[in-house]
Amino acid sequence: MSRKLERKMLRLLAGGGPVALGAGSASFRRLARLTLLAEQFGYAYADLRQGGTSFTLYLVPDLRPRARELAAENWSRYPRAAEGGPLPATDLDTYALLRARMLSDLERRYRKEVLWLISVPLVLVALDFGGDFGDGWHSVLTIAAVAWAGAVVLLLPFHVWGRRTARKSAALLEAAGFTRVPDGNGRLRHVPPGDEERPGPGVAGGRR
């Protein structure tokens, strides 16, 4: 994992407030490692969003007593963590759950955005195709509609894969005791047991 991204995150965590970390095109495993490292310093996963090919990882302070104790212990034990010093060890035992949460948070919005972005150029290509082979507007629109419909059919596997992934993620999270609740924007999300009141990324926009 990029040490530079780790150090950047730790500098933000040192501010003590909610954090929005631009993680570029990091893999889910890298994002999970970042989250697990943040947990060592008193933070918890809040959300993951995607714009184009870049991810933004949202983290919020974990106010549970044990989390605060762990944070104080690690900041004391690793005082130069944000400047290139040693870091506490992390493991990926909870990787499957973190990945499921991230996929669940991304899936609906990401699938809609991708379908929209793909559909617009498909319409333009279909109209151009119809213009090349059609004779008159009626013919052009008919050929364009058929071409567009055929292209949309090719996107159905992506749609099916997205829904299947969402179902698997939801089943894994619910089996682990996660609850599906609406956030401040009405978006349904899975949160850990007893975590329904934790603030969402709406308050996690500040970079410190």
Rank of each mutant, 00 (worst) to 15 (best):
G162D: 03
G162S: 15
G162M: 08
G162K: 11
R163K: 13
R163E: 14
R163N: 06
R164P: 07
R164S: 13
R164L: 15
R164K: 14
R164N: 13
R164Q: 15
T165V: 13
T165P: 05
A166H: 01
A166S: 03
A166M: 01
A166G: 02
A166D: 05
R167M: 05
K168I: 11
K168F: 06
S169K: 02
A170Q: 00
A171G: 08
A171S: 11
A171D: 15
L172I: 00
L172S: 04
L172Y: 01
L173Y: 08
L173K: 13
L173T: 09
E174A: 15
E174H: 14
E174Q: 15
A175F: 07
A175N: 12
A175L: 12
A175V: 09
A176C: 11
G177Y: 01
G177M: 00
F178M: 04
T179I: 10
T179V: 14
R180E: 14
R180L: 13
V181N: 03
P182S: 10
P182L: 07
D183Y: 04
D183L: 08
G184P: 05
N185C: 07
N185D: 12
G186D: 07
G186T: 08
G186H: 09
R187N: 11
R187E: 12
R187Y: 10
R187I: 14
L188G: 08
L188W: 12
R189E: 11
R189I: 14
R189P: 04
R189T: 05
V191C: 07
V191S: 06
P192L: 02
P192D: 01
P193Q: 07
P193M: 07
P193K: 04
G194Y: 11
G194T: 10
G194E: 09
G194A: 10
